[in-house]
């Protein structure tokens, strides 16, 4: 499986990952090489094999919905790159 330069660009877009031209070229080559190594999986018959369940058999986990202490606003905002009036600040999302 070869990954073309255009496919690399498309995947980067899906991941919202900016890539330089040089990176895109390099990834096209490197990812193709890695994907070749995945072809070994084609030889194994997985008809009727279920996809894995968690390593340890577990049911869903429930707990009481209890009110607990949350973090103070300043602690939550302390790492924010941009903030205003005790809120995270982002650029406009709607036109």
């Amino acid at each position: 499986m070869k990954l073309s330069y255009d496919q690399v660009k498309h995947i980067a877009w899906l991941a919202r990952l900016g890539l330089s031209e040089a990176e895109s070229e390099k990834f096209s080559f490197q990812l193709s090489n890695i994907l070749e190594n995945f072809e070994v999986l084609e030889e194994i018959d997985t008809t009727n094999v279920p996809p894995v369940t968690p390593s340890i058999p577990q049911q869903n986990v429930f707990r009481e919905d209890r009110i607990a202490k949350s973090y103070p606003q300043n602690a939550v905002l302390a790492n924010a790159p941009r903030q205003e009036e005790n809120c995270f600040k982002v650029q406009a999302i709607l036109e």
Partner: peptide
Amino acid sequence: AYYLKAQKVRTLIK
């Protein structure tokens, strides 16, 4: 071809 296949082979390895 990739994710689902790998999850199935994961079952076999396990």
